[in-house]
Structure formats: structure tokens, C-alpha cells
Design a protein around this nucleic acid. Structure first.
Lengths: 262, 262
DNA sequence: TGACAATTCATACGTTCGTTTTAAACATAT
DNA sequence: ATATGTTTAAAACGAACGTATGAATTGTCA
């Protein structure tokens, strides 16, 4: 609306690190408020989604002032990024730690597919049992967000996952040298979907399948979910390769010779 | 806010079937507007999600007046329900038609798991290739919406799917008599997740796995997706049963003797 | 052709949203 | 004590939202 694009505001300067300019005054009180906001936002985003959760709802749940979010995080958009960042850093570090440990044991040789799948998805499900790093609340939020249509959330999650995904894909390439890489990537996607749906679907899609499970199966037992999911994922990953239709304009990679795993 | 719960508005009377009160005046023009709105809403909901898509965005895309949505559908909530209903009716009818046909052929005997999986998920993917019933737009929208946090969407989808899910679950029970029902239901969930993620993830989560597929694999070829997905789903469905930890308060079904499928 | 209902149109209503502002209290370190 | 950073309170901002209204327009049938 105004004259030129270069505005005169000194925005965004104070919000990100307002407390570290001089010393560490009031650090504990500030971090306490920050965490109350993050925890409330995490829980509400999980239950209602990003758009449907208002700032007033968050600050009311966290029992802090409405202006506190913009003071500590700068914007609602920056808040949700921080909600994910503090948990994803732990999760992906843990995934890489487990993978590194496994790879060190085999001295450059290939890992077993079951090891890789467990490091990737088992770590995620075990995180859901560890309340000190967010517990099931964050894991369910993450599973839901993987299919979120919002642009800025997608690009943020993609950036956060990039390195981890690359490492695990390459581990699978080495573990299954006879399987075409494109097939592995597809099955990696399928595994991601089955897992994220298993986590969130347990409450969201209860109605779709009506469950009709025995009560003992229904309650929150992620320790029962993990072995079930692992069997399914490994069965899918090691399934016989599909018979793909002949490719008309195949001028690219030698797509013809897809050797069966079995 | 006002006196008593019984309001004085004569709401909701005209919107649903305004054109059938007297005769069939302007029927073609009205249906044309209705379909323009439904198509625009379907596309925008797919791309941006329900909350992030405004009425003004929809009516602008459909090139109709802003008030047309409330005139023809009554509310935004009723609009999205109609968006799903017109496609889901076709999809689930088709699923049941295929299943009925298969069951008629085996005369009360069990179906092969691959037949059931194909009737359920193959029908969905084949729908994505049929532009006359929504094509890939609706299928991707549906995949995304299965994990939507919104309450009224969940209950609506659950109601729309209830009968179909029940039929397919029972078909799987009969096809795999030695597998505990709870295990089948879990794996049905896993298959749902892998499928819906495979459909929507192809564009949403491109960044997460970086793909790095050959360009020939990347373009829109759901006919290539189907055999890949079917192999994965069947591999997961028929995987060896997991070794579940001993159940402390096991007073329910004989959970111990889980015979392997193989 | 004129009456009439169905549809379209421009416009406005009331609400809620994220964000900003101002002022005053509060805590902590130098 | 002073300076610095944090929190609260209350209020308001402009923008965008879903929805409602009444007049204009359109198509159909008496």
C-alpha cells in the first residue's frame, strides 16, 4: 500500500533472542513461559490442527498472556516451527545414533533390513512411550502433519528430514543391492504412510473401521503396536517385486531387468 | 444469546432442494453452477485443505457469485460433505460391486487375499485414472482427509465408510481363518495408511524423501503405482505374525496360539 | 406477454483472527 | 539503586472469515 517495498520497521530483531542480548536475566522464568506455550500448542495442534487452533486458545490453555507468543516466538508460524523443531531434533538425532551404532558393528557391510526399519520406525514408536521427549502427543501430531496440505509446514518438515532420509535410503540400497532403487524408495514411502496412519489412526479413524477389537487390544499399548507394525513393514519391504507393465518410451535407466528378491 | 433455544428462523428449508418445490425451472443452469462449485471446492480442498480454503476462494475459482454456495448448499460445512458424498457414493458402490461379483464366483467360499485387497485399494487407484468420477484430484483429497483432525469430517467419513469397511473386514476374516481378527484389523489399518500416503505423498512429501527417482518414474503414472502398491500390501498382509509379549491380564480371547500363516 | 419462482448479484453484517501497542508491575544481575 | 529483561493487563488494529439480505436478472409456463 505504501511507497516502496523497503519498509521502515525494525521487525523481528527482538523476538528471537531477546533474552541473550546482555546477560541471562530471568532465564528460568522466560523458559518456563516458553515451555508452557510450546506444550499447550503441541497438544492443541495435535487435537484440532494448525488452522483451527487460535492464539487465544493456546495462551488460554497455557495460562499466559496473549501477547506472550508474539513476544517469545514472533509469530504463530514461528511457534509451530519451534514446536516441531525441539522434538524432531531429538528424534532424528536418536535415529542417526542407532543407525551409526549398527553400521559400526558391521564394519562397512550391509545391514539387515529389519535393523534399518527398526532404527527408523521403531525409534519413532519408542519415542511415543517416552514422556520426557513429548510422548505420544508429539508423535501423533507428527504423523498427522506428514499429510498436511500447508505449504510452509511441508517445506519445513522436508528440510528437517532431509539428511536422515538420505542416510536411511542409502542404508536400504546397500542392504538390498538386487532391488531397484526406485522400488526401494516407493516402499519406503509405503512404510512411512503405514506408520503415520497407525499412530494417528488409532484415534482419528476409529469410526472408519469400527475396530470391534477386544478391549484389551484397544487401549493405549504402543508396545503392542510396534511388533505388529514391524511385521507388516518387513513383509511389505521384502515382498516379491511387482510385474511392471512394459515401458513405451523407455530411454532412461535400464528399467527392464528387475531381478526378484527371492 | 437470545431468550429460548427455539429460534424463529425458517433456516435450511430452501437450500437443499430449492429447485424441486414447484417444477424444474432453470434446472440446467442451477446444476451447472452447483457442479462448478463442487469441482472448484474439490480442487482447492485438495490443494490447501479445508480450513485454509475460503468461500471467496472457491467462488472465485468457480466463477460464480459468493452467495451461490450458501444458496445451493446452505453452508461451507454442507458443501464439503457434498464434495465427498458425490464421489464416495460411486467409489464405495464400485467396491461393493467388485466384491459381490467375486463372492458370487466362489459360492460362499473364501476369497484370495489378493482379490480382496484389489477390490478395496485397486478400485481406489483405478478411480484416480477415471476423470469422469473425479480422477486423481478427489482420490488425493480423500487420502489427505483420512488423517484430518476436524471432528465433523471424521464422523462424516466414518459414517460413509462404515458398511464397506465391515464387508471387507469380514471377507478378510473368511479368507484368513487362522489369523486372529485383531491382527487382520491392524493390518487393514496399515494398508489404509500406506495407500492414502502413497496417493497424497507423491506430491506433498516429495521433499521429505527427495525422491531422486528417474524422471520416468516421477511423472503421474498411477498405473505403475498400482502393481507396486499391491505387492507391498500383500507382502505386509501375509507377513509372519509378530511375537507379541505375554499379556498379564489376559482373560479374553485365546491370544496365545497365533498360528503362522506360512 | 405477463406473472412468478428460481437464480444471480453487489453489498453489508457481525465475528474472529493474528498482531501490535501502551502502560504498569515484577524479577534478577551488576 | 539502577538497568535489563520478562510478564501481565486491556485495548485496539486491519484483515479475512462465513453468512445474510434485498434488489436485479433470468428462464419457464400460464
Amino acid at each position: 500500500m505504501s511507497d516502496i517495498g523497503v519498509s521502515e520497521t525494525n521487525f523481528e530483531v527482538k523476538s528471537n533472542d531477546a533474552k541473550s542480548v546482555d546477560g541471562k536475566a530471568n532465564e528460568s522464568r522466560a523458559n518456563e513461559t516458553r515451555e508452557k506455550i510450546l506444550n499447550a500448542a503441541e497438544r492443541l495442534f495435535m487435537e484440532f490442527g494448525y488452522d483451527a487452533t487460535s492464539m487465544r486458545h493456546i495462551t488460554s490453555e497455557a495460562e499466559v498472556n496473549l501477547a506472550a507468543v508474539n513476544y517469545h516466538f514472533g509469530s504463530k508460524e514461528a511457534l509451530i516451527q519451534e514446536v516441531f523443531r525441539r522434538r524432531l531434533d531429538w528424534l532424528n538425532d536418536e535415529r542417526l545414533r542407532v543407525l551409526d551404532e549398527m553400521e559400526a558393528e558391521v564394519n562397512g557391510g550391509p545391514l539387515k533390513p529389519s535393523q534399518i526399519v527398526d532404527a527408523m520406525f521403531g525409534t519413532l514408536l519408542r519415542m511415543a512411550n517416552d514422556e520426557s521427549v513429548g510422548g505420544s502427543t508429539f508423535v501423533r501430531l507428527l504423523g498427522r502433519t506428514l499429510t498436511d496440505p500447508s505449504k510452509f509446514i511441508n517445506t519445513f518438515l522436508a528440510r528437517e528430514h532431509a539428511y536422515v532420509m538420505d542416510r536411511f535410503k542409502n542404508a536400504l540400497f546397500k542392504a538390498l543391492p538386487d532391488v531397484p532403487k526406485s522400488e526401494i524408495i516407493w516402499r519406503f514411502h509405503f512404510m512411512l504412510g503405514a506408520t503415520s496412519y497407525a499412530i494417528t489412526g488409532a484415534d482419528a479413524l476409529t469410526g472408519v473401521t469400527d475396530w470391534q477389537l477386544s478391549p484389551s487390544d484397544k487401549d493405549e499399548r504402543p508396545d503392542l503396536l510396534l511388533p505388529r507394525l514391524m511385521s507388516f513393514l518387513l513383509g511389505g519391504l521384502r515382498a516379491p517385486l511387482p510385474q511392471l507393465p512394459i515401458f513405451p518410451q523407455s530411454g532412461n535407466a535400464s528399467q527392464g531387468a528387475h531381478d526378484s528378491i527371492y
